[in-house]
Design a protein around this nucleic acid. Structure first.
Lengths: 209, 209
DNA sequence: TAGATTGTTAATCGATTAACAATC
DNA sequence: TAGATTGTTAATCGATTAACAATC
């Protein structure tokens, strides 16, 4: 039935979105694949393939209608339908994420959880912090299916297990360990050390020359 | 001369590192490609190819010596040689990063910069915050070549331009826009919206079924 | 020794890029 | 109309996976 968009394509679509919104604000109405390609250093054919995944069709000699294209990308990414989320781990990174508004990226953080008594009951960036003991109860009551893990690596798996027990369907994991979860549970990892690995390796290579 | 390790391999090596350190702490001395592969759900051949990039050779029937392997991965990633870095943008995310210790991942954040008068002169997580006007002067004096950008998207390019002018060689960019920099400048992007795009798209697909 | 694991070559798979007729 | 841009098919490229002799 569904195509199942490839990972590389899914990673490029938000870039297009951001740029399209920007030039739309400048009054531009159409964008060609070569315009997008040159902005990002991609191949125009690749851009057309990516955009084809949205179902939008372009017009020869003009390109794609920006309004319709933005809407189609939003739908494809699931950003037109916001899911509620709980965040666990109110440390530096967790607090930072509580200050972000991800509502144009498909999620809304409802509340946060921690085990530190001093944090429980407080508000961080206007989000209430609850005891981790209450997560199952609250998730079931509020029908929350998306969890964000910002605890230290050694506690990440036990937090994930709690989330699974509470019926979560998807986990956005910022901890530096791979989570062991059933096949049907979605996990997306954000690994800062991986990102740094690429940067520092390339830097070393650069200085070697 | 140098091979130029592929991006997929560079992304997997930190995973191996983390796991190797963990089991080393449990007293394990050798790790086979199949052990690592099963831990992460990879193919054992792929693990061997990755490890071959480090130059370490395994021993048939035993695997790789963990102590030597960790050292070899560290060297390959450039994590044995710590680069000083400056961070620009002391908001939620910037403050969070200032609280992290990246010294085992090849960088050390020396100081932070911002344009907000209320932040300048303060200390966040024990890192001093300077006026952005001083970045070139300080970078030249302290020989800093790595910049971290945690400002809002609309200011990211101008911060990058300042860094280039100050002689920076590498930028770790957390802003949601691609930076336009000369070819020889390294940029590594961390894009939360891209990561969310994959999660929310898969979630939508999951509910569709 | 027997057999698990290595390093490496060959086959497969998937994504990117090139080529080009159709179209506005 | 002329020609820029589309959608799509074919060729290329690079990474993953399979196969297997060598080895401890």
């Amino acid at each position: 039935m569904s195509k199942g968009i490839s990972r590389p394509t899914l990673k490029r679509l938000p870039l297009y979105m951001h740029y399209l919104k920007r030039i739309q604000g400048e009054g531009v109405e159409f964008a060609s694949s070569s315009l997008l390609a040159s902005e990002f250093g991609f191949d125009p054919t690749q851009v057309r393939k990516d955009l084809a995944a949205t179902g939008e069709v372009g017009i020869a000699r003009r390109g794609f209608e920006i309004v319709a294209l933005i809407k189609a990308i939003e739908e494809l990414l699931g950003w037109n339908n916001i899911s509620d989320a709980f965040l666990v781990g109110v440390g530096n990174l967790g607090s930072a994420l509580l200050g972000y508004d991800f509502s144009s990226n498909g999620i809304h953080i409802l509340a946060a959880f921690d085990t530190d008594e001093r944090k429980i009951g407080s508000r961080i960036n206007d989000k209430k912090v609850f005891s981790l003991n209450n997560i199952k109860d609250l998730a079931e009551r509020m029908k929350v299916k998306v969890g964000i893990i910002t605890v230290p690596a050694q506690h990440a798996q036990s937090v994930a297990d709690l989330m699974l027990d509470a019926g979560f369907e998807a986990i956005w994991n910022f901890a530096a360990v791979p989570l062991k979860v059933p096949e049907d549970i979605l996990v997306e990892n954000v690994r800062l050390s991986t990102s740094l690995a690429i940067l520092t390796n390339r830097l070393k290579e650069k200085y070697k020359k």
